[in-house]
Amino acid sequence: MAVRCPGDAGERAWVDGLRRGEAAAFDAVFAGYRRRLYGYLVRMTRRRDVAEDLLQETFLRLAQHAGKLDRETRLGAWLFTVAHRLVVSWARAQAVRSQLAGDLPAREVAHDARSPLEALADSQAQLALERAFAALAPAYREVALLVGVEGMQPAEVAQILGHKPDAIRQRLARARTQLAEALGEYAPASWRMP
């Protein structure tokens, strides 16, 4: 990752810059969060083209709301909340489209074909991991990504997803169980059954 997100003081400076309408502050936020958000969006939608569109919409909304941001805004939580809502809207639209196209034959996909995402894996373990995350139900995958990849606390994830922390902890436990099963020999030792 080329640019790391700053600490609280740096993030406050970004928020202040955004509130003043400074393009430089926007560029800094974009550089700091673009890769994280894009990774989350690709793994949630499993489509790079859709992830690009949703990433653009996320940053368009940031630009539009820049002047109204609260000084205490936590940009990571704000951006992931917007991205989450966009993913939910997209998934709903997809579900409606699937229902409308219910009579059409499903597109055949070779069973052992690698998705573009899986093609990034450079070892069997990485491939197994990517597939294990992809196999999770979206609600569990989202929590696993936000906690596992983004390093967020369950309470923060609860705020982003608009659920109670207990529900997030439950999803986290289920995600862990499903990941352990899917990973098999690649699962962390502490997750394997005795």
Partner: peptide, 8 residues
């Protein structure tokens, strides 16, 4: 585990 995922 998350750190092991390939970067996108």
């Amino acid at each position: 585990l998350g750190r092991e995922l390939p970067g996108i």
